[in-house]
Amino acid sequence: MEPTVSFFSGFAPKDLLFLGEAALRTMWISVLSISIGTLLGVVFGWILYEGKWAAALTVAPILDIFRSVPLIIQLVLFYNFAPIVGLNLDPFASGVVILTIYTASLVANVARGGIEAVEPPMRRAARSLGMSYWQDLRHVVLPIGGRAVFPAWVGVALGVMKDSALVSVLGYVELLKASQILITRTQEPFLILSIAGAFYFALSYPISRYAASLERKWAQ
């Protein structure tokens, strides 16, 4: 008689390790995309602020597209069409590229708001001390405007971190994809999704707490 083949097996402690590793991948892809995306977004925000109509005709519509089209569509389109133009990117790299652009498109408007938050008289005062345009931007606009829009930026960062789950559709084994794999094997979706949720929470909560404590410090 043939031995019984078991397709399903229960949740084992080593699966927790598997999820933990996946959580690290979620963190990694998020940290990369959010930091590069934020830097790009600040540059785009500055272009939107300074560029006037030229920016309104060029950068603004492109950012609008990335802000408005659902991320999952962007990911699938990019992953499948990039090879046509000779870009052979693995799921991780594709995810980073799209999440970065997506972050940049959201941060651009936050950054523009930050620059606008610094009133012209403040900037004139800085310039009257002999500061150059760039010194004013770096030492006055960045710290003052940055603090004004920091809560909005934290919102974007946490959102992108959670949205990174969509990279699972490309086959990158981050937290959500890892959960799906385990669910298929264990047939215990409730348990596993709860654990995955807890991991996402564990990634976000320290950021929110840290942000809140920074805001308290600045408010003094």
Partner: peptide, 20 residues
């Protein structure tokens, strides 16, 4: 102009202290 402005201190109606 940035160099010249170092010679010309200016005080405005609004004090514009850097809050940070």
């Amino acid at each position: 102009i940035n160099k010249l402005r170092q010679q010309l201190g200016m005080v405005f109606q609004q004090w514009n202290s850097f809050p940070h």
